[in-house]
Every structure is written in structure tokens, then in C-alpha cells.
Design a binder for these strands. Structure first.
Length: 507
RNA sequence: GGUCCAUUCGUCUAGUGGUUAGGACGUCAGGUUUUCAUCCUGUUAACAGGGGUUCGAUUCCCCUAUGGACUACCA
């Protein structure tokens, strides 16, 4: 599909370093990345830090680290360099002023001297009157700016150093037609738009100016961004027109919604329902856990995120990054917001965990054990992983499936004791103990036939014995095949647990 | 309030002017496992409502409802 006359695809992810990157932001980055790679293009990371007041220490590093963890590789950016730098807007400060001036010279922008307080008052008054204050063609003539003032007057203000902003002079009553790749054609009348500030009194451009200038200068071919930008698209189209530049193509992505109730996904939802909303742990200020720390594999996380709002049109659900790149098409991104489903996220991780080798998982689990003061020989852990791997979705869940491998039961499930511990259980287990004690080979293939033969020969009840046996070994009716367990813990430990269990339960 | 965007099972979604409206997650039920979990099989459940257009609309158009975004010298 041909999108544009530009032959090179160049896209950018342009977050503001105001805190940890939300998973919605990660998805925007991902779609940009997939689109770039699919079309042999370039993926650019541009930091939009024009708001000095909202800058948060560490956020920029967080963004880069998060993308790296996700496997999203930046082609051009602060760390990577590139021919279109700098890639941080605060480092580009000197660039923007001339473009604002160009607009003033063309008559498409003007100086405005109204104080924020004054505007705030006007807005409040309008609201009280049930109207919306819009700084537009109708209002600007009665406000303080270079449109309403005589040239000598506003020049004098400028010369005296009065604070001012530069506003875009929104056309009076014009229908602006534009296209969005995802939503098709949209028409907006400029009468409902306001004269947006392009250049702030602190000498920095606003998002709108910096964004258009940078996208043009960086030769961005496609702007793929969140739906929250759709309302300002007409302004952006107008800016391109005023500058006489060809606009890029636009695609506005639907939002990520909260799992239940209304509204978009927020940190609170994650806290409330126990799932992360950020890719990585955020250590500053109000801390937040991340998908990485929760035990998600990056490829599972990315796979899950990719399918939230996009689908390949086939029934395939599991995709490596390369497969995603191969299958991705922006035409198949949906129009409506997607509710985030934490259950499905877990399912993805389960799928990915199953594809890891026992060795890989054993190495991860050994770290987990170390933090709890247990040692794990890697060979033994591999065999343990083989027994419990398919039961879990996360490495951290292995512990609750296997704690009894590492320590004898401290308590016995009372429900089970009541139901399964019979009069003769002690006697039977002591017989069983004798057989096991005599065993020279404690492997499953050696112990299991012996025990089963013994049960059959004596006409015992298999269920009664096996349940009682499991109770003294595990402490409850759960876990893998019982002969696998005793083989793993070994003869000494097995006999000890039988003794301890019988001693306690036969009272 | 205004502007714009959206609306298929509980959730993510496929899909077509005539289909038994498909898949996945979840739910539930069986089976496997003499345990639990996994796994397998099956089940469940949807075109927001109302008008048009049409021989026929879930599909095209309009209205309503609902949801969402935006409405800053924030991005």
C-alpha cells in the first residue's frame, strides 16, 4: 500500500518526560516501531520536554530503558544519534523562534499580551454564563494583542519587554478537511477552534509548534499517535499549510480502557486490581511496579500489547517481534478503544513460559530461591521445573507449586486429615516406610512398581494409601506425581517426613 | 456546555448486502491426573436502540442513546 509520495518511511515516538511511560504509550511506540520496520523505515525517539514545569527527573532514562526492555530498537535518538538531531526539544530551543516569526511575518500568527490570570477570569465568567470562552477571531479583537492594538502600541510593549505569547491566527469560518489513516475523512470548522499559543512567554514553543517544526525537519512521513491528539489535528494541518509544507500522513490510535467500569486505563486501576500499568518499576516519588518486576517476559508483554487494538486478520495469536513486524499493517488497527484484560495478559505469559527451556527457567528460579535463603543445584532445579512448569504462568509462581520440595510440611491440611486419615493409616504408612527404606534405587521407575505391587498383593485401598502418603509428604492434596516428589527429595527426607507425619497425625 | 471520535459474546476481536455471525481469554460441564494444577473435549454468550435505502440489512445512510477524547502560556 502506498501512503505518501515520500519514499522513505520515517516515524517517531515523541513522549514527554513527565513520569513513567504508561502501557498505552508503550503500545504507541510499538505500533510506530512495527510500522517502521515493516516498511524498511526509521524509528525515531524524540523527547518532548518543552514544558519545564512538568519535567521529571529520571523519566527520560526510564523511557529509553523501557523501550530497550521491550525490544523496541531506536534508530535515531538521544543515545543513538542521527542526522536530524538534536532529539531532545529543549536542546532545539534555538530552532523554534524563527518559525514563529515566519508565521507572524505571513500574518498567520500574532503577539498576545493577555495575562494568564485575565484569561482565567474570562473563562470562568463565560462558564458561569453557560458559554465557552474561545480565544478566536471574534474575541481577539477585544483582547490585548497585535491584532487589536495599533502597531505603535504593541511595538512599544515589545520594546518595554512585556511578557507575551505568540498565537496562531485561526481562520474565521472555514471547513478544514483532512484524512486519518484509521478513521478516514474528518471535517472540522475553524469557528470552533481557538487561537492556540505557539510560543510561550518563557521562550519555549508549545507542543503544537515544536511538533510540527520537528516533524518537518526530521522528515517524518507518518505520525502515529494517541487519539487524544485528534482534536488538535486541524490546527496541525493548518500549520503545515501556513508554512507551505507537505504534511505527513496521520494515524490516531484508539485508547486503552480500564478493565471494568468507565474511562481510560489509569494507575489506580492497576493498583486496585493488582496488575501493573507501567512496563518497569518506577522508583521515584509515587513508586509503581512494572511488568518486568511482576515476572512478565518482554516478548509476552509485547505480544499482548500488540493485539490490543490490532489484529492480523488470521487466527494466529502468538507472535515474536519479527512475526509482528512481518504481519503488521496499520489498516488493521481498530477504531474503538480496547479494554485491558489482565487475565489475558497472564495467559500470554503462560504461553511464553512454556516455550522456555527448563535450564532458562531454572536459572531464573534459582535467583528467586536465593532471595528466600534456599540453594538450588541447577541440575536438580531443572528436573523440578520439568515437573511444575506447565502449572504456572510466572517464575515466581513456581514457589507455591514446589515449596514442599524444599521443606517438610509444617502444617497438615485439616480438611484432608479429617477426610483421608483413617484408623489404619499409620500402620499402612509404616509398612510403606519399610519398603522404601529397603529400596536401593529411589528413582520413580524403581519405587513405584514396588509400592503398587505391595498394595495389590495385600488388597489395600490405593486411594487411601496414596492420599495419606501425599499428606505426610506434601501436607496437602496437591503437587506433581508423588513418586516424582519423593525421588527428588530423596530417601532420607522421605522417611523423615513419614515419621513426622505419622507421629503427629496418629495422636 | 461545545467540537470531534467510537459502538459485534463479560473481555480482545474476525466477518459479510443473503453466514448455523468465526476464533481467543474468561465462565461452566465432562475427560485425563487415584491429589491439585496443567492439558483435552464440549458448553456458554454478541451485531446498542429507532428510523430509512433495499427483494433482503449486523453490514449502507440518518437520528437517539451510551462511552471516550479534547476544550491550558500540559503534552
Amino acid at each position: 500500500m502506498i501512503y505518501h509520495n515520500m519514499n522513505e518511511v520515517r516515524v517517531r515516538f515523541a513522549p514527554s518526560p513527565t513520569g513513567p511511560l504508561h502501557i498505552g504509550g508503550v503500545r504507541t511506540a510499538l505500533y510506530n516501531y512495527l510500522f517502521a520496520k515493516k516498511n524498511s523505515g526509521t524509528f525515531i525517539l524524540r523527547i518532548e520536554d518543552t514544558d519545564q514545569a512538568r519535567f521529571v527527573e529520571g523519566a527520560e532514562e526510564y523511557i529509553m530503558e523501557a523501550l530497550e526492555w521491550c525490544g523496541i530498537i531506536v534508530d535515531e535518538g538521544i543515545r543513538e544519534g542521527g542526522n536530524f538531531g538534536p532529539y531532545r526539544q529543549s536542546d532545539r530551543k534555538a530552532i523554534y523562534r524563527q518559525y514563529a516569526d515566519t508565521l507572524i511575518d505571513k500574518g498567520d500568527a500574532y503577539y498576545a499580551f493577555d495575562t494568564p490570570e485575565k484569561l482565567e477570569t474570562l473563562r470562568r465568567e463565560s462558564e458561569k454564563a453557560g458559554k465557552t470562552f474561545i480565544y478566536n477571531a471574534e474575541e481577539r479583537v477585544s483582547l490585548i494583542n497585535s491584532v487589536s492594538l495599533k502597531e505603535a502600541e504593541w511595538r512599544e510593549k515589545l520594546d518595554k519587554g512585556e511578557p507575551y505569547v505568540i498565537r496562531y491566527k485561526m481562520p474565521y469560518n472555514e471547513d478544514i478537511h483532512f484524512d486519518d489513516i484509521i478513521r478516514g475523512q474528518i471535517v472540522v470548522n475553524t469557528g470552533t477552534l481557538d487561537d492556540k499559543v505557539l510560543f510561550k512567554s518563557d521562550g519555549m514553543p508549545t507542543y503544537h509548534l515544536a511538533n510540527i517544526v520537528d516533524d518537518h525537519l526530521m522528515k517524518i512521513s507518518h505520525v502515529i499517535r494517541g487519539e487524544e491528539w485528534l482534536p488538535s489535528l486541524p490546527l496541525h494541518i493548518l500549520l503545515y499549510r501556513s508554512f507551505g509544507w507537505d504534511p505527513p500522513l496521520f494515524a490516531h490510535l484508539p485508547l486503552l480502557l480500564k478493565p471494568d467500569g468507565k474511562g481510560k486505563l489509569s494507575k489506580r486501576d492497576g493498583d486496585k486490581m493488582g496488575f501493573p500499568v507501567f512496563p518497569l518499576f518506577w522508583p521515584y516519588g509515587e513508586t509503581s511496579k512494572g511488568y518486568r518486576e511482576d515476572g512478565y517476559y518482554p516478548d509476552a508483554f509485547i505480544n499482548m500489547l500488540a493485539l490490543l487494538g490490532w489484529n492480523p486478520g488470521t487466527e494466529q495469536e502468538l507472535f515474536s517481534m519479527d512475526e509482528l513486524i512481518n504481519s503488521f499493517s496499520i489498516d488493521r488497527v481498530g477504531k474503538s478503544g480496547s479494554r485491558f484484560d489482565p487475565e489475558k495478559a497472564k495467559w500470554f505469559n503462560h504461553q511464553y513460559l512454556q516455550t522456555k527451556t527448563n535450564t532458562q527457567i531454572a536459572i531464573e528460579f534459582r535467583e528467586f530461591l536465593r532471595a528466600r535463603g534456599y540453594h538450588g543445584d541447577i541440575i536438580r532445579l531443572e528436573s523440578l521445573i520439568g515437573m511444575v512448569k506447565e502449572r504456572v504462568s510466572f517464575v515466581k509462581d513456581i514457589w507455591e507449586q514446589s515449596d514442599f520440595f524444599f521443606k517438610a510440611p509444617e502444617i497438615y491440611d485439616q480438611e484432608v486429615v479429617k477426610k483421608r486419615w483413617k484408623e489404619d493409616s499409620s500402620r499402612l504408612l509404616m509398612e510403606l516406610r519399610t519398603l522404601l527404606e529397603e529400596a536401593t534405587d529411589f528413582s520413580v521407575s524403581a519405587t513405584e512398581p514396588v509400592i503398587k505391587a505391595w498394595i495389590e498383593k495385600n488388597g489395600y485401598n490405593t486411594g487411601e494409601i496414596m492420599n495419606a502418603f501425599r499428606l505426610v509428604i506434601v501436607g496437602a492434596l496437591r503437587g506433581p506425581h508423588i513418586f516424582d516428589i519423593i525421588s527428588w527429595i530423596g530417601k532420607d527426607e522421605t522417611l523423615k517426613r513419614i515419621d513426622a507425619g505419622v507421629a503427629l497425625l496418629s495422636k
